[in-house]
C-alpha cells in the first residue's frame, strides 16, 4: 500500500492529486498517515506505528484506520 506518485501533501494538510485535479484536506493524524504512506507499507505496520504513538484503544484504532484507508482507496490516492 503506497501513496500514488502524483499526490502532493503539504504541511498544512492540503492534498493535491495531480492525476485527477481533486484536492483534499487532512487533520494532523491524517497528514501523518499519508506521509508514512510515501513509503510502501502494510496495514499491520501502520497500525503498530500509530498504536505505539497514540493513546487509543486497539479496536478503535483498527476501525478508524480501516475506514480511513478505505476512503483513501475510494478517492484513488493510494495504490494497493
Amino acid at each position: 500500500m503506497k501513496l500514488k506518485s502524483n499526490v502532493a501533501i503539504s504541511d498544512s494538510g492540503f492534498v493535491f492529486d495531480a492525476n485527477t485535479g481533486e484536492s483534499y484536506s487532512l487533520n494532523p493524524i491524517g497528514i501523518e498517515i499519508l506521509n508514512e504512506l510515501k513509503q510502501s507499507k502494510i496495514t499491520e505496520d501502520l497500525f503498530a506505528y500509530l498504536n505505539n504513538k497514540y493513546e487509543v484503544a486497539e479496536f478503535t484504532l483498527e476501525q478508524n484506520l480501516m475506514d480511513f484507508l478505505s476512503q483513501l482507496k475510494q478517492y484513488g490516492i493510494i495504490d494497493e
Partner: peptide
C-alpha cells in the same frame, strides 16, 4: 495556482 487555492481552503 493550486497554492493560492490551498491557502484559501486550508487557512
Amino acid at each position: 495556482d493550486i497554492s493560492q487555492f490551498e491557502q484559501l481552503s486550508i487557512n
